[in-house]
Design a protein around this nucleic acid. Sequence first.
DNA 1: CTTGCTTACGAGACTCGTAATAATT
DNA 2: AATTATTACGAGTCTCGTAAGCAAG
Lengths: 298, 298
Amino acid sequence: MNLQQLRYLREAVRRDLNLTSAALALHTSQPGLSKAIRELEDELGITIFVRHGKRLTHLTDAGRAVIVIVERILLEIDNLKRSSSDWHNAQVGELRIAATHTQARYSLPPAIARLRADYPEVTVRLHQGSPSQIVAMIRLGQVDLGIATEAIGQQADLDSEDLFSWYHCAVAMPSHPLCRLEKVDLKALSEHDLITYDPQFAGRAHIDRAFNEARLKPRIVLEATDSDVIKTYVRLGLGVGIVSELAISPEDESEGAPQRLVRLPIERPFARNTTRVAFLHGRILRRYEQALIEAMKY
Amino acid sequence: MNLQQLRYLREAVRRDLNLTSAALALHTSQPGLSKAIRELEDELGITIFVRHGKRLTHLTDAGRAVIVIVERILLEIDNLKRSSSDWHNAQVGELRIAATHTQARYSLPPAIARLRADYPEVTVRLHQGSPSQIVAMIRLGQVDLGIATEAIGQQADLDSEDLFSWYHCAVAMPSHPLCRLEKVDLKALSEHDLITYDPQFAGRAHIDRAFNEARLKPRIVLEATDSDVIKTYVRLGLGVGIVSELAISPEDESEGAPQRLVRLPIERPFARNTTRVAFLHGRILRRYEQALIEAMKY
DNA sequence: CTTGCTTACGAGACTCGTAATAATT
DNA sequence: AATTATTACGAGTCTCGTAAGCAAG
C-alpha cells in the first residue's frame, strides 16, 4: 500500500468513478491509475468498486467505509506538509479562499491587505461562489478556507469559526417616499418595491423570516447575489435595497456624493447574521491562515 | 514522501532515537532507515532530530509537532487495513489483549471462550502486566485491547469503555476469629493481618482510601499482583485476604472443599471498582473486537 | 463507433542491503 | 575500543507511460 494509491482512489471517487478524468486531473496515465486501484483492492482484499464489464458503476459498502478512512489519511498527510512548512518558512505559501461576493468585496479586503503586509510571500487566490458552492470547493480541496454567512456552520465534515456579526440595512435614494418617515417598519417596507439578495446569500433567510412572521408579503422586484448590483439598481430608482451594512460605506451616504444613498431608520432590525469561516474537519491551519482569521474577527 | 518513511520515523522515536534498534525492530538495515529519515526531513524541509555529530540526541519542536501527525496517519492506515479485513473475512485474524492477572484469570475466560466459539479463526494472544504496563503496551501498538481496573480511564491518548463493576470481598479460613462475628467492620479488619493486592492493582487504591478515611492503619502483611497468590496465602493461614469478588468461586466457598474459604460479612463494602477496556484513540475496532467487548459487559 | 477500463510490456527510477567511513561515548 | 550514524554503490524491484485489446452505451 502506498500514498499514491490512496490519492488515486480519492480522485476516482471525486470524479464520480471516471478513471480517465481522474488520471487527467492527476497528470498521470489512465492505465496506471487503473492498475494502482486494482492493486490496492487486492492488497486490502476487498472490492471497492462495483464493475459492470469495464465500467465502474458504483461503490461497494466496503468501498464507502474505506474511502472515509482514506480521506482522513490524506487530510493528515496534508496537515503534515502544511505543519512542516510552517516550521521552516512560515511566511511563504499560497492561501486559497472561497467567499461570497459580499465578503470578498467588503469584509475580506482589509484582512487580506493586512495579511499581505505581514506575509508578503503568501499568494492569495480568491474564489467566489454561492455558499453551497463554497462548501463544495472546501470539500474537494480546491480552497483552504471558505467564508460565508449561510449554510456554513452546519456541515458535519467541516470545522468552522465565528468571525463577526452584522445586520441588514435598508437603503434608498433621497427622493424615495420612505426617506420622509421617522421610523420605517416592516409593513412600510412591504408596501414598496424591494431589492435584495438571492435566497442562498447573505442572510436572505432572515429577511424572509421577518416578513413571514409579520404575515407580510414583501414585493421583491429584484434579487442579486451581489451587494454592488443591488446598490446599482437602488440608484436607478428601482426600489429600496436591503443589503448588508458591510456594503454601505460612508461615501455612499455622504451629502456630496453624486448618487447618494440614504439609510432608512428601520424600526427593528432583521435578525443578526454571523459570518463564519470553514475548512475541512481536522485540518491544521497554517500560521498565516490563523492570522487571516484573527484579522477578520472584530 | 511515503508510508515507509513515516513508519521508520515512528519507530525511531519509539526506540528513543536509536536508529540501530529501530532498524532491528523493523527487520531492515540501519543505513536504509537513516537515509529514509533524512529524505523525509529534506522533503518536509525541517529537521526532526537534533544531531550531535553522529548521534540523534533529541527531537526538535518541529519534530514533536510532526510525530503527532505521523502517529495519526499510521493509526488510520491501520484502521484502513483492519476495516477492509472486516469486510472480506470478518472471522479471521489475531486479537492481542493485555490484562491484569485478575482479569485474565477470572473475567476474560468466558468472554474468550465465547469469542473462540463465534470466531474460531481468530487467534488470541493474552499478555499480562500491571495497569501501567498495559497502557504502555497499547501505546506501543503491542496489543489491540487493554483491560484493567486502574489507571485506564484517564489517558488522553486512549479511548476506553466501561465493562462491568465489582466489589472487593474479604475471605478467611473457617478457623479465623473474624469468621465468628456477625458483622465485620473496617476496625475489626484492621486488627488482623491482611493480604491484598499490590498498590497498582485491582482497586487497591479504594482499599487504602477506605482505611484512611476511617483513620485506621491496616496491617497488610503481604501484597501480590495476583488473586490466586493471595488466596494461597490465606489458605496457609497468613491472614485475611481482600480480593476481588471475581476471584472467589462457589467451589472456594463450598462446604466440602478441602481448603474452604469463608467470605466475611463486611459491614460496608469498599468502593465500587469498574473494569474498563482501552485502546488507541481513534482506532476502529474489528467486528470480533467489538464482540469480545460486548461479551464482557454485564 | 465512441467512450472508457484492463492487459502487456519495457525503460527508467527507486528501494534496500552490504561495505566502508566517520563521529561520539 | 565500542557503539552508532552517514555515505557509497550496485542488484533487484517497482513504477509508470505507451500501445493494444475489449466491453458497454
